[in-house]
Amino acid sequence: MYPAKQVEEALEKMDIKYQIVHHPVAHTTEEADNFIEGIEGVRTKTMFLTNKKKTECYLLVMDDAKRLNFHQFEELTGAKRPKMGHDDLLFEKLGLEPGIVSIFGLLNNKDHDVKVYFDKAILSEKRMSFHPNINTRTIFVDSDDVLQFVKNLGYDYQILELEEDKEF
């Protein structure tokens, strides 16, 4: 099934409202911003992470303008030496390519083994934006509905209070 269609059908089945914007390929959030300027919704960064031994995978949703402090993530979650997940593992676990990682990749997690985290700061925003598993569209969903989507898929999630990484 076409990736964006899969996302739309899942949201409709869950009775979750969304707004979708079609646009040319956007490899970065900066590129996507050119096509969605003026539309309400925080721009998200969804990071696919693993522990050192690649025995656990994590999906972290945070504000795109924020940088992750990996040491703090480790302290808050107990993840052993977290790092960005490799492209092959990303595809294996979420069926996604680099540059289009989003919460909607959970639709493809057959083993249901990815741990989900949200930065607390992003949850105060009314709406969030993501790529719907393809980088020629941007989808906007109310923040409460994003959390409901995760629950509807049978995932638990944790909310982390992440501080800005000051090293950059």
Rank of each mutant, 00 (worst) to 15 (best):
K83Y: 02
D33H: 14
T136Y: 14
E40P: 04
L162G: 01
D156R: 10
E97L: 15
N133E: 07
L94S: 11
S129F: 08
R127D: 00
L160R: 02
L68S: 09
H27E: 06
D111S: 04
K83M: 08
V25I: 12
L94H: 15
R81V: 07
P24N: 08
Y117F: 11
G38D: 04
Y18S: 03
I139T: 02
I122C: 01
N152C: 13
L94V: 14
Q148M: 10
A65P: 01
F118T: 04
D15W: 02
D63C: 08
K115P: 05
I39V: 11
Q19Y: 14
V141Y: 06
N133M: 06
M62W: 00
Y2W: 15
T29S: 14
G105L: 06
I16T: 10
R137K: 13
L68M: 14
L162S: 01
Q72S: 08
S102A: 10
A121M: 00
L147R: 03
D63E: 10
I103H: 03
D145R: 07
T138I: 09
L49C: 01
Q19T: 13
Y155I: 14
D63W: 00
Y117W: 07
M14K: 13
Q72H: 10
T29N: 15
N69W: 02
F35P: 05
D15M: 12
E12F: 01
E164I: 03
N51H: 00
L96A: 02
E8N: 14
D144C: 05
R81L: 03
